[in-house]
C-alpha cells in the first residue's frame, strides 16, 4: 500500500458517499445518471467475486463490501425509493453500446483466459467508460448541481491517483499491469474536460455549466 493508492481509495469512498448522501438528504436523484450507477454496480460485482476466496487484508475486504453495498444502495434509491425524481428523459445513453464491446474486448485481451480473470478484465474495461452516461447527461442538461460536480471530481481523482500509484509500484515493487494502466489512462482522460470546468468554475464558487 502507498499514499497514492490510499488517498485514491479514500477519494473513491468519498465520491460514493457524497452521492449517496446527496440523494438521501435531498430525497432526489435529479441530475444523476442511474445508468452510470448500474454500470458501477456491475463493475464492483464482477471485480470483487474473489471477495470470499482470496483474502488480501481486512482493509481490502472491508472496502470491497462497502463499495458493493453503497453502490447497490445508490441504485436502489434511484430506481425504487426515489424513482419519481429520476430524470429518465436526460439519462438516455445506450449502455449496451458500452457493455457489449467491453465484454468482447475482455474476451480478446486479457492476462489469463479463465472466468475470474475475464470478469476482472471486463470490470477494468467497463469502469473506464462507466462515467460516460453521467457526462452525457450533464452535456444534455447543460449543467450539474455543485454537489454532483464534487462527486465527479472525487471520482475522477481516484483513478488519477491510481495512475501515480502504478508509477510508484513500478519503480519500487516492479509491479506493472498494462491492462489496468491503459484502462486507467482512458478513464482519467475522459474526466479532463470536466476537471477543466471544475477547476475554472466550481473552485471559484460558480455553478458548473457547460458552454451551450
Amino acid at each position: 500500500m502507498n499514499i497514492f493508492r490510499l488517498v485514491g481509495d479514500l477519494s473513491h469512498l468519498l465520491a460514493i458517499f457524497v452521492l449517496l448522501l446527496k440523494i438521501w438528504k435531498s430525497r432526489s436523484c435529479a441530475g444523476v445518471s442511474g445508468k452510470s450507477q448500474i454500470l458501477f454496480a456491475l463493475v464492483f460485482i464482477t471485480r470483487y467475486l474473489d471477495l470470499f476466496t482470496n483474502f488480501i487484508s481486512v482493509y481490502n475486504s472491508l472496502m470491497k463490501v462497502i463499495f458493493i453495498a453503497s453502490t447497490v444502495a445508490t441504485v436502489y434509491l434511484m430506481y425504487i425509493k426515489f424513482k419519481a425524481t429520476y430524470d429518465s428523459n436526460h439519462d438516455t445513453f445506450r449502455i449496451e453500446f458500452l457493455v457489449v464491446p467491453v465484454g468482447g474486448l475482455a474476451f480478446l485481451v486479457n492476462h489469463d483466459f479463465t472466468p475470474l480473470e475475464i470478469l476482472w478484465t471486463f470490470s477494468i474495461y467497463l469502469e473506464s467508460v462507466a462515467i460516460l452516461p453521467q457526462l452525457f447527461m450533464i452535456s444534455k442538461t447543460g449543467e450539474a448541481e455543485t454537489i454532483t460536480s464534487h462527486y465527479l471530481f472525487a471520482l475522477g481523482s481516484y483513478r488519477a491517483l491510481y495512475l501515480l500509484n502504478w508509477i510508484y509500484r513500478y519503480y519500487f515493487e516492479g509491479y506493472f499491469d498494462l491492462i489496468a494502466v491503459v484502462a486507467g489512462c482512458v478513464q482519467t482522460i475522459l474526466y479532463c474536460d470536466f476537471f477543466y470546468l471544475y477547476i475554472t468554475k466550481v473552485m471559484w464558487g460558480k455553478k458548473l455549466s457547460l458552454p451551450a
Binding site: 480473470e117 506493472f176 498494462l178
Partner: peptide
C-alpha cells in the same frame, strides 16, 4: 507475468 495474478488492489 507483469501483474503476479494476485489482485491486491481495489
Amino acid at each position: 507475468k507483469e501483474s503476479d495474478g494476485l489482485k491486491d488492489e481495489l
